[in-house]
Design a protein around this nucleic acid. Structure first.
Lengths: 344, 344
DNA sequence: GTGAAAGCGCTAACAT
DNA sequence: ATGTTAGCGCTTTCAC
């Protein structure tokens, strides 16, 4: 059943039916009711492609993920973000397209996306430092929001991010307050801007308290379980007096491995080792007073996705408005789940 | 730059240009080269919506996830499946649309999807037992593949699944072979067919060896970390002589909580407690001889996604061919990673 | 308040 | 081998 048939059934022109369905004011109330009723009865749905072609809007938002960032999609944090964004989309009649673009073909891929006109805007995930995709998208003229930033200063494009620097400053400070001097930091890859900012936060807290940073305790690798396990195991194999007593873990995934290594070493988190995990959300930690941790609850990450989607839809509706930046503050949570906090 | 303009530039008709670009045989080689070259030079991209409207194919595949199955999208297994499917799609020029449909509105939502003509086919995730979506999709006539099954017998629709029964039969048998008599089974919700099949496999192994099934050791809940933690903690609080010595965990996520509980109880996996985790893939377990486990490596799950996508594209290309079913065998892996095995 | 006609950018039947 | 024409299903002037 298409518009034309529906119109014929009703003895009206397609134009009028279209107007009635789309709530144009010039249609009489009587006709509108009649049309809408018939549309429901006949199970009529407008053809999205035809609408799209006629209006120029596709009602599709792309989420773009470099394929080499596989770790990210597998990261529950990413998934929660998507869940949040989905909610915004479904409330506004948009659909979500997941685009994993292979590296290398990047430029071509983005140009494809834009000029095929199949998306009204995109959310760019896993940006790297000085990500060339920003210039590319601006040049193409496709509305976009970055999930993360690519430098400290840029105000000429829209992004949403957490304040990673402040987050890790707080986290490090907590370990210091607990009396830890030998603190190991297992960070993500520092070509990512968020990881750079985390490093800055760590350094800032260490330096402001004049605590020495042991270079042997500093790591920067893709955030995997294996990484967490290997490094933690190696660190804990040293004698108690010289090994780190505090662990700062840049993600939940790293913590999976680290926990196992701690376990195998016969130690307990919160006793022999204090561990702070950035984006963890382990509900069973919530009542433990012994394990300081820095959490990003899942619902907050979801909220970040929701906000990012909101921003993008706003930009699409009003392309002339300037870019918008949102820096979400993380709150440090010790042993219980409190306020909102999201992670990269 | 659109087809018409490109054609004008070349002094050709749009038809010829279209044919040249789409590799129709009747175009002369000379013209084809000329057209393709010009297309690249002018950065021409066909408009997907217009193509879609003209051909009837949208080159979009939907992945459909009930919104209440949030646990699933957050499950890395789901994500890996998507990564695999994406690969098939990008190789074949398809795009992936992620549809999270709120429960309740289900029927309407699916009809929308189908009649809006925005997807050529769908992959249905997290089917429940006797899932009504199967009938609905058949009625609508939208090609689909189920990721999982909805009953033991159905041969009239396409699905891809692992042999959950055989997998859990093997897993249980391993625990029995190791001498365990008190085996606890933390299953997923048994309205899901896969969970039913897992239960069947467990029972089958227990009964064939005439081992008593302790009803206090049987659980069936949504697969969360909290579940794994709570139940394991409770189980292990009993005296050694009566508490379970073997744990059969239906998912990686459950294991996250269970591991923590085991740790807190001062026990070690592979020593005081033998644990088998169905869809775990913890690379750092691979060289451990002490922890029997049943793994689904991530690459295998990815392969399942890839295969599912292949099946769907085949159905779309050839709608008259009958439905196809693929039951992937899981191989039990003890302490090292071997052959292919995928999970629900 | 309603309708006729043109057009969004492409493909496909039917010429030639 | 190339062009002409019609049409996919909708929206949007413009006219009445």
């Amino acid at each position: 059943m298409n518009l034309k048939q529906l119109a014929e059934n009703l003895g009206l022109s397609p134009t009028t039916v279209s107007r009635a369905l789309n709530d144009y004011p010039e249609v009489s109330e009587v006709t509108r009711r009649r049309v809408k009723k018939a549309a429901i009865q006949n199970n009529y749905r407008p053809n999205a492609k035809a609408m799209s072609l006629a209006t120029g809007r596709s009602m599709v938002i792309g989420h773009i993920l470099p394929l080499d960032a596989k770790n990210d999609i597998v990261n529950p944090i990413f998934s929660e973000f998507i869940v949040g964004a989905s909610q915004t989309y479904s409330e506004n009649g948009y659909q979500l397209m997941l685009s994993m673009v292979p590296e290398g073909t990047t430029n071509q891929a983005y140009r494809n996306i834009a000029s095929k006109g199949s998306m009204d805007g995109v959310i760019v995930h896993s940006p790297i430092n000085q990500d060339p995709r920003v210039n590319l998208l601006q040049e193409i003229g496709l509305p976009f929001v970055l999930h993360g930033r690519i430098s400290d200063e840029d105000k000429n494009y829209s992004w949403i991010d957490v304040n990673n620097k402040s987050a890790f400053e707080q986290a490090t400070q907590l370990l210091l307050d607990l009396g830890h001097q030998r603190i190991a930091f297992l960070n993500g890859e520092e070509q990512h801007h968020f990881a750079q900012r985390r490093r800055m936060g760590f350094k800032s807290a260490m330096q402001s308290t004049k605590t020495a940073i042991n270079p042997d305790f500093q790591f920067s690798e893709p955030m995997t379980e294996e990484y967490g396990y290997r490094v933690t195991k190696s660190l804990l194999s040293a004698p108690e007096k010289v090994r780190p007593s505090g662990l700062l873990l840049s993600s939940y995934v790293i913590a999976l491995g680290a926990r196992r290594a701690i376990h195998e070493a016969g130690l307990q988190m919160g006793k022999e080792v204090s561990v702070i995990i950035h984006d963890d959300e382990l509900s069973y930690f919530q009542n433990s007073e012994t394990v300081p941790q820095f959490t990003a609850t899942r619902s907050s990450v979801r909220d970040a996705g929701l906000q990012a989607a909101d921003m993008l839809l706003k930009i699409i509706k009003n392309p002339d408005a300037g870019p918008e930046q949102r820096l979400l503050e993380c709150r440090l949570t010790v042993g219980s789940s409190t306020g909102p906090c999201i992670s990269n």
